[in-house]
Structures are given as C-alpha cells and as structure tokens.
Simulated assay, not measured.
Amino acid sequence: MNSATSYADTETPLRSHHGQFRPEDFDSFWLDTLAEADRHPLDLRLEPVESPLRTIDVFDLTFAGFGGEPVKGWLRLPRARGAKLQAIVEYVGYGSGRGHHIDNLLWSSAGYAHLTMDTRGQGSSHSIGHTPDPHGSGPSVPGFATRGIAGPGEYYYRRVITDAVRAVAAVRTLECVDASRVAPFGASQGGGIALAVAGLVEGLSAVVAKVPCLSNFPLGISLAESGPYTEIAAWLRIHAEEEAEALHTLSYFDAVNFVERATAPALFSAALKDMVCPAPTVYSAHDAYAGEKSLNLWKYSGHEGGGVGEDHQVLGFLEAKMATSSDRSSG
C-alpha cells in the first residue's frame, strides 16, 4: 500500500540547494510589483451560475489581477451556511484552467468557501480556462515556463503570482467569508504559486503545497524528465550563452525565496518517483520555510502524489489549523 512517510523519519538525498540564490532586490521587486497592482481596484464581480447542484452555490467570479486585467475564477459555497466561512483559494496545475463549474467540489462540500483561480493563458491541456494573457514575450519554448525569461519584469509568472495575491484579496472582501481564515492551496504549479502567496500575504491561516513546482529552479532543471522544468532546459540548450541571465530571472519566482518570509502553518508533500517536480526540489522549499511545517513523502508515487488519501490528510490539516488561526493572530 502506498503511504505517506514523515519527512523527519526519511533519508532525503540531494538536499543541496544546487545553485539556487536570492537576489538582493527580491523584496523590493515584489513590493513594487504588488504596489503597482494595488493601484487598480479589485473590481470584483460575481454572477450566479445556473446549476443542477443541490447543495453548492456556484458563482462566476471576475477580479482585476496584474495590470488591472480581468482574471476569472469559480467561487463555490455550501448552500447551507450561517456563520462566516473559512476560505480556500486554489491555484491549479500547469496547463490547466479553472475547469467547469461542476468540477472540484470537495472543498465546498467540506464547508469551505472555495475560490478556484483561472491561470492566465493556460487551460487547454487538462481543464478549460477562460482568462487570456494579453502579453507577448521574446523567443520561448512551447509552454509557459520560458515566456519572458530574459528579465524578471517581463517573466510570465510575475503576472500569475500577482493574480494569485489579488485572488486572496478578492476572497477576503466577500461578506460570507471570515477574512482572517483563508488558506492558499495548490498542487504542482498550483503548489508553487501557493508558496509564493504564503511569502507575500500576511495573516494566512494555513498553506497546502502538494508536490509543488517552481521550487529550486536550478535543481529542477537538472533533475526533471518532463514538465515545465524541461522546457527551461530545452531553452537553455539553444540559449546557453544566456544561462546566467535566465537563472537570475527565475530566482525572483522561486518558492525557496518566497517562503523565507512565510509564517502560516504549511503542509507540503513530495513523491520519490516524481519526475515532473522531483522530491529534492520540494525539500528545498520545505527546508527554507520559516513557519510551522510538515512534509508527507509518498515513497511509491509519481507526480500524482498521494491521491485521495492525501486529500483526506489535507482536510484534517485544514480543520486543525483553520480552527485555531484567529487565536494565533490575536495572541
């Protein structure tokens, strides 16, 4: 039976940061980026969705993300609700979009307000998306990981991570949500985005990063056999003379650098047979995480992680940490 193993009880090879570094202006870069975004009103819009669902209300949500550009999402709420709800903001995996409104019902069924953020420009590989990315880039490998890689100001994930921070701000404005009890959540690309949000947003209740990507880019480029890290390796094969500049750009978007400032309790997972987001890249983010943290290691899994069993563990983690988050923030 595939099972999770405590990180503390498991030997963890290749835990070296393998060339990962933090630029001196990392904090000012993100302060300026988010200040620029804040000049745009959130312009939050909710449209009820006609649905055959009987226990969940769904809203087509739109908010202003990077550059004031509209970003879509699904907001799912338990139909029976009294007190203000704890909220999960979910970021989806690479190539995916927000999907259909009847997808992904676990978290709202468990009683949470659940916002699934669309990822700009994606949403045609695994699930449908509805948010364009109206920005061009220089030469890039097919995919998203090398778009704008020549400089941090133009890099694709600058826009996506800004959208993700704004998604938390949007859900916190909802009357039905307890703004002090919000948790970012994601797997793969979504897990890396959740870790970035954990380092940029104050007052979060918990963070869940399942087999996260966007962590220790240099190590991921050297170890991964499929997925977005391999796109970067392919780009570097053609643009070898630009390696230093590309790695400098990526350092502004590396989860390892965000989580040094993160304080919310975090649950990580990694899988030893994961060739998309190899386990050693996850160890790097886990080791650097400044707050309370735990890591479940799936010994026999690939990028799927722990599947339904892992979801069950996440539900328990969120129930414990979200329930006590107000006490922590007031203590």
Rank of each mutant, 00 (worst) to 15 (best):
325 S>E: 05
93 G>R: 13
125 S>K: 13
241 E>V: 08
305 G>R: 08
154 E>S: 15
192 G>N: 03
211 V>P: 00
303 H>G: 05
132 P>A: 10
164 A>P: 02
269 S>N: 06
211 V>M: 02
151 G>C: 10
34 L>I: 08
218 P>K: 12
284 S>C: 14
288 A>G: 11
180 S>A: 14
47 E>Q: 14
328 R>Q: 10
235 W>G: 01
237 R>E: 13
225 E>T: 09
292 E>Y: 04
130 H>F: 14
130 H>Q: 11
61 L>S: 02
312 H>I: 13
229 Y>T: 09
69 E>I: 03
274 D>L: 01
22 R>I: 05
88 I>W: 08
168 V>Y: 00
162 T>S: 00
4 A>D: 13
317 F>T: 11
45 R>H: 06
148 G>W: 00
57 D>H: 07
144 F>N: 09
77 L>M: 02
35 A>G: 14
276 V>F: 05
222 S>I: 05
312 H>D: 14
70 P>S: 03
305 G>C: 06
310 E>Y: 12
302 G>Q: 04
226 S>E: 11
206 A>Y: 13
219 L>S: 15
113 A>C: 08
281 T>K: 10
309 G>A: 11
295 L>C: 15
91 Y>D: 02
282 V>L: 04
26 F>W: 10
58 V>A: 15
67 G>W: 04
70 P>Y: 02
175 E>F: 04
109 S>K: 12
200 L>T: 03
306 G>Y: 07
63 F>P: 00
203 G>F: 07
105 L>S: 11
282 V>S: 11
203 G>I: 06
79 R>W: 04
66 F>L: 00
271 A>K: 06
152 P>S: 08
161 I>Q: 00
1 M>W: 01
297 L>K: 07
201 V>S: 05
302 G>N: 08
19 G>Q: 13
52 P>L: 10
186 G>V: 08
116 T>M: 10
284 S>F: 06
70 P>M: 00
7 Y>C: 12
228 P>M: 10
13 P>I: 03
223 L>Q: 12
90 E>T: 08
275 M>C: 00
251 S>K: 12
21 F>C: 04
75 L>G: 03
292 E>W: 05
58 V>G: 10
132 P>T: 14
12 T>Q: 14
6 S>P: 12
213 C>V: 05
273 K>I: 01
73 G>Y: 01
175 E>N: 13
243 E>P: 06
103 D>Q: 11
102 I>V: 13
132 P>Y: 07
157 Y>N: 00
127 S>H: 10
140 S>V: 02
151 G>N: 15
283 Y>Q: 13
101 H>G: 02
6 S>A: 15
282 V>D: 09
116 T>L: 13
179 A>D: 15
268 F>Q: 14
190 G>H: 03
55 T>K: 07
256 V>G: 10
188 S>R: 02
294 S>E: 15
196 A>D: 07
21 F>M: 13
213 C>H: 14
127 S>F: 09
99 G>Y: 11
44 L>I: 12
100 H>Q: 13
150 A>S: 14
68 G>C: 01
284 S>K: 08
264 A>W: 09
133 D>T: 05
160 V>R: 01
117 M>Y: 01
19 G>H: 08
78 P>H: 01
